[in-house]
Design a protein around this nucleic acid. Structure first.
Lengths: 198, 198
DNA sequence: GCATGACACGAGCGATCACTCGCATACAAT
DNA sequence: ATTGTATGCGAGTGATCGCTCGTGTCATGC
């Protein structure tokens, strides 16, 4: 942000720009979301937009951040809630929270996951991934005595987290002929089979 | 292709355009790969480029197609070679072929997987995914008597193929602190644990 | 009510882009 | 040699883009 909006009307303008930007992205696609068009959609002049955003990237970044932060919070909250329960319950609860969050706005997910170059997302997404990976890694390390001796917790966590995350996103976007209950059950099985004593 | 090159020199020109395009993409990134720049890099005029390619998309598409087709062929070949062996061997051989193919040109993989919007890839990548999914699905169906009764082969195949593919790509691109032997072993375990009788 | 800074405007700048077209050249067949 | 065609050229077109800046309006403190 180039300048902090101080008056009520400017704060409202920033808000209008963000929601207009999201609307343009949803309606016309990510590539068509030019600053001029977002400003027009928001009923704001291009110059006004640049009073509070340093460049185009900042506008779109703010829009995507809102979405990713929302998903992030819901998933980490679900995981934290069940952190003391058994492995299968943890997987199930976290996965359900993730699927709920992703299914709530499939169109925005499609833009973020399919239209944005991964590069621009990696910082955001990998922040969440890393947080979850660390949590799971710690969890596994605590249970290490019960597990295979040769399995490094961080390795298992790296694999498990990426597998689950990607499968959940693909499931929501591709809508394969697998009903959700079955899907959740299978991923639970996949994880408990891989990490049997967790 | 707008026109089929008939003489030797025009075929060479098309070749020069494709390799120049790949070089530009690798050096300057996907977004910077404009038709003018590719033509300049190839030592060719923009007009000439458009004699054999209908539009920009066709040029970049041809470049990416080459790469994806190459990876595709190697992986399907490896899988077909081991199709009559046991599950673990199949997984190991296929995964090794995939990792070999991906590691051979990490930079191009990065462009295709990280800089290209997934949308533009989905047709290409999902063709491979679908082929492998079908193969694995048939394989599992043939062994169904040995397996859990409630597990639909196509469901298990969908999950297994996407999990392996994504994990392999991410492993090559992110280079997590997991050595390759361990990684292959873990994915083999992940699969054999999930599909124990396969 | 007046001054001051925050706010909003929108025409337009400079750059880039995908793509075209009129023209010159090289090749192949006769 | 001549002719028809395939090839190649590159300046140029029109459109779009991100972004600026000079101008005017509004809110706020005094």
């Amino acid at each position: 942000m180039r300048k902090v909006p101080q008056q009520q009307r400017s704060r409202e303008m920033v808000e209008r720009i963000l929601t207009a930007g999201r609307d343009v992205v949803l309606r016309d696609g990510y590539d068509a979301a030019s600053t001029n068009r977002i400003a027009a959609e928001a009923g704001v002049s291009p110059g006004s937009l640049y009073q509070y955003f340093p460049d185009k990237e900042a506008v779109l970044s703010a829009i995507v951040d809102r979405y990713v932060d929302d998903v992030s919070k819901r998933v980490t909250a679900a995981l934290a809630d069940r952190f003391d329960e058994t492995g299968p319950q943890m997987v199930r609860a976290t996965l359900n929270a993730l699927l709920d969050a992703l299914e709530e706005n499939t169109e925005l997910l499609r833009v973020v996951a399919d239209e944005l170059p991964r590069k621009e997302n990696s910082a955001r997404a990998s922040a969440l991934e890393q947080r979850i990976t660390d949590l799971l890694s710690a969890y596994l390390a605590a249970r290490r005595p019960l597990m295979r001796r040769d399995l490094t917790p961080s390795t298992a966590a790296w694999i498990a987290v990426r597998a689950i995350e990607n499968l959940a996103v693909r499931y929501v976007l591709e809508q394969p002929p697998i009903d959700r209950e079955t899907f959740v059950g299978e991923l639970e099985r996949l994880m408990t089979a891989y990490l049997p004593e967790a």
